[in-house]
Amino acid sequence: MLGQQLFNGVLLGATFALVALGFNLVVGAMDRLNFALGETAMVSAVVGAVLMETGLPFAVAFLAAIATGGLLAVIVYVASFRYVSDRFPTASILSSLGMGLVLTAVVVKVFGSDQRSVPDVLAGVDLDLGLFRVSGAQLVIIVLAALMTVGLYVFLDRTVWGTAIRGVSDDPTMVALLGVPVQRVILLTFTLSGVLAGAAGLLTGLAYHSVSPFDGFTSTLTALMVIVLGGLGSVTGGVIAALVIGVLQTLTVAYLSATLRDLIVFVLVGIVLLVRPQGLFGRNAGVLERV
């Protein structure tokens, strides 16, 4: 049973990792927090679920979800970041929180306030790997989450645009002087973060079997805990922290009590913050000073 519980935890962590990565990209590029990212994930999941209900294959729904995520992230960028003064640190936080409210309210208005059921994928598949069993949906979640994470690594590491994103996150002044179109790079960063959030939304929906219009803020919060634990701006740290939190939450629920689930994460993050403010894998203290 422990094997199964550990696998459950890794699966949960994998979905956390995707939103956290999206969150982290924006922190890296702009030193600002996009508090509408959780709602972006939620809307993408709703769009994906609606398409799956109409009988379209999962692949189409998934593509639609990530496209929705990317598009919404661009809209949020324009509304809450592009024209909002960065002299007031609270301005873009409030503005993106406002966008989050709008997205939730629009979904409630169009689709209602009920939880929306997310149909199963590969319902017949059930792999018994000895230590644990993997259902079809779980297989899809773990494979797609892994693919997207690896894809992000490769993109950031091997491509020109990826290098530009890392450059902007390291030193915007320098890369601007070198002729990198900073605004376009930031736009690309937001799109990517939205794509990751969109994928995370639908995959989380698969894992939870449903999506609720009110899930958005919780996802944002979890992502925040993950990136603080892993270190702001650190991709590797984010992935590891997500898995740690996923496994920790699962084991807490299984062997202690569900009431302690969030508490244990908060305590862990609180201790890490006070003892090691740059997070477990923080690259430098520079980002901290600025955010």
Partner: peptide, 20 residues
Amino acid sequence: RATFASGDSSFASQITSIAA
């Protein structure tokens, strides 16, 4: 007996315990 806290939860962990 299994518990959860309303909100985000996959229920996978609880059901694994119950299934056992």
